[in-house]
């Protein structure tokens, strides 16, 4: 593998794993969303997001990293490059047993991620690695609607009851503390942006802040400083127990019969 290919893969792992885990956390909400209409809309978004992960895994497969299913189902937690905030559980309990999931946290995490994803896709449109240009264009058409969805939730909940406002503000602080990990390009960030695969971390951050503050302004909210990375940097393979348990669920059947050729 050439050095350049290493950095290309590094970036694509980040994109693939972010979408893969984010979609998984979303899919845990299935049947538990605040109303049935949201269940339908949210599961459509999760399905699209899993599709995006799949497209990125396909790029990795072309780069000789392994098959799509090996990449998604047969890697150790330390090999995952997703940001920590995206692996965090939706709340206490499991998706089958007494889930006490936090809708405010979900809305904020999806909104923050959605805004960054949009910025990343715009930047990938100019990538020096052509396959990323094609993939990002395909994803962009769907992403537009996803972001609109989360912006609607955000606005409505922020401008509703005091209870909702409090929960939303708490969720903002919580996600803010770790969202720096999603913006991060990891230890090879400089090489990745020098190769013009995607904009630099600083550029991504300042554009994200500009757009997020714009959204905050509309509901009379403000926050100082940059988002943090308190729990560590997932881009460098640092993860929590939440990722380990998520991966165990995601690959339970895959690992249940090692002789199986087809599923």
């Amino acid at each position: 593998m050439t050095k350049d290919n290493k950095y290309i893969s590094e970036l694509i792992y980040q994109l693939a794993d972010d979408n893969f885990i984010h979609s998984y956390r979303g899919s845990e909400w299935l049947g538990l969303a605040p109303h049935i209409e949201e269940d339908v809309a949210f599961s459509s978004i999760n399905q699209d997001t899993m599709g995006h992960a799949s497209m990125y895994f396909e790029l990795l497969e072309t780069l000789g990293e392994g098959s799509v299913d090996e990449l998604s189902h047969n890697r150790k937690p330390k090999d995952f490059r997703n940001a920590i905030i995206l692996e965090e559980a939706n709340g206490s309990g499991t998706y089958l047993d007494q889930p006490e999931y936090d809708w405010a946290f979900t809305v904020i995490r999806h909104l923050f991620f959605g805004v960054l994803k949009e910025i990343r896709l715009e930047s990938l449109n100019q990538s020096s690695y052509e396959p990323l240009i094609h993939t990002s264009r395909k994803i962009q058409t769907e992403q537009y609607y996803h972001l609109m969805h989360w912006k609607t939730w955000f606005t409505q909940l922020m401008l509703s009851t005091q209870e909702a406002r409090d929960k939303m503000e708490q969720a903002i602080s919580r996600v803010w503390r770790d969202f720096g990990g999603v913006i991060s390009l990891g230890k090879y960030g400089k090489e990745i942006s020098d190769l013009k695969l995607i904009a630099s971390e600083d550029e991504l951050r300042s554009e994200w802040l500009r757009r997020i503050h714009q959204i905050f302004d509309q509901v009379g909210f403000s926050i100082e400083g940059n988002p943090g990375m308190e729990q560590g940097n997932g881009r460098n393979g640092e993860h929590t127990e939440d990722l380990t348990s998520a991966l165990n669920i995601l690959s339970e059947v895959y690992h249940s019969d090692i002789d199986a050729v087809t599923w």
């Binding site: 049947g31 538990l32 969303a33 605040p34 109303h35 889930p99 006490e100 999931y101 809708w103 409505q156 909940l157 401008l159 509703s160 009851t161 209870e163 909702a164 929960k167």
Partner: peptide, 15 residues
Amino acid sequence: SYKNNEWVRNALAAY
């Protein structure tokens, strides 16, 4: 889950 998300439905109604 319906009970857990009651605050969301109340919030939407208020909005």
